[in-house]
Design a protein around this nucleic acid. Structure first.
Lengths: 224, 224
DNA sequence: CTTGGTTCGTGATTTTTTTCACGAACAGGA
DNA sequence: TCCTGTTCGTGAAAAAAATCACGAACCAAG
């Protein structure tokens, strides 16, 4: 039995969200085609992806929504309470700290850090901002395994190293730099600038096409 | 000549950033292996990706940093000034509106919208917040082609429709819903919850492994 | 000008992911 | 019970992407 492909894993949260929506609508069974419709994913791919879970659907009926939700929660570890430390209380850090949606994924941002003396000691969403000097110790003492980096790029590497020293095992990095960390540390890179560049490229394509003005319009379908 | 694969396109911004960094360090030439090192990408892949651009490297030397930067800027359309409208001035919307980094990618968030009467008329980063009622007209009048959605999921679809009515061609969607828009509208979905779920899954794997306690530790290498 | 060391560019190969095609399971009604 | 229409699960085929392997370009130095 092979392990789940990365793209499939990335689609599971999508299914989870649509299933939760269906649950709110009191829908008890959903076929792969209906679920696919809701997520914009082909039905076959839905089935293939879900086949990596132990939970099975029922032929002729579909998937039991509540059961599948429960299995996805277990598989994705959403039910486990996970404490996280966030470093860098700028506008993005503050936004993440205040965002209420993470709770339903089991994530609690329990401590905030910054190196700006003006911010240290202030409160954000009821949590005190600590100095980064205390990062390693505090994280270790609290047994925190997840770190979120929302600092400028220049200091992200140093922060990551302190996180590793504090025994953090997974880092969600919003700073636009490649972090150099030991192999056993999982880094999830969040790159808004990269997304933006892809968007920008597409807009440029539009311009190029419109300048060529209906002359060379072949089957050059852009990326979806 | 085939068009660039999506994963390659997504890596170009990465190269761009590393090249800018090199430029600051007064490096004039960079080989594919050096560039790859800096971005965490194999050298061959760097070469393959860059081969989709018209700009060529020099055998035995590498790529001219300044030239390549210029070509990437052109290819990605970063030099073109792009105006964008942002809808949903919550904590995330505010963070994006205040983020200074987009400027270097040619993006200017020129107008802000919200449906909360308390927010309408207030200022964020020197820009007045307008009522969403005026979205379609204002966007059309200003010729804005990019929309950014940072509203709650429930209203995202309605906002997207108004954007389309206002002749917006590309949408950067931070709301966790699948937008139903015409085929010619480009949607770049930004899904923090999905990233979080992947992170969560990895943390869970850690737990499972440590519970099995060195017994069944096979070659089950987790995703990078 | 020749030699040796470096690097690019790319066709061929391998790996990964998606899509297809179809047998088997199931529900519901006659 | 039998028949029909639906859906799942999955091996096989196709498509896409990453990796390999190597010829050719290039520089520097003797």
């Amino acid at each position: 039995m092979r392990s789940i492909p990365k793209p499939s894993l990335a689609r599971l949260p999508l299914y989870y969200r649509c299933l939760m929506e269906a649950l709110r609508q009191n829908i008890t069974y959903l076929s792969s085609s209906e679920l696919g419709e809701r997520c914009g994913v082909p039905a076959v791919q839905v089935r293939k992806d879900l086949s990596y879970l132990s939970q099975k659907g029922r032929s002729g009926v579909g998937y039991n929504v509540a059961d599948l939700v429960a299995h996805l929660e277990a598989y994705l570890g959403l039910a486990n309470e996970k404490d996280a430390a966030l470093v860098g209380v700028g506008s993005l850090g503050r936004a993440l700290a205040l965002y209420p949606g993470f709770g339903s994924y089991g994530l609690q941002i329990v401590t905030l850090f910054d190196n700006d003396p003006l911010k240290v000691g202030s409160e954000v969403g009821g949590r005190t901002v600590f100095s980064v000097d205390r990062l390693t110790n505090l994280v270790r003492r609290l047994g925190i395994r997840i770190g979120i980096i929302t600092t400028p790029a220049a200091v992200a590497q140093a922060v990551a190293e302190e996180m590793v020293a504090g025994d953090i095992k997974a880092i969600w990095n919003f700073a636009p730099v490649l972090l150099d960390v030991p192999d056993d540390i999982f880094v999830k890179q969040e790159d808004l600038a990269a997304s933006l560049a892809v968007l920008s490229h597409h807009i440029r394509q539009l311009k190029v096409v419109s300048e060529h003005d209906e002359i060379e319009v072949t089957a050059s379908n852009a990326c979806g």
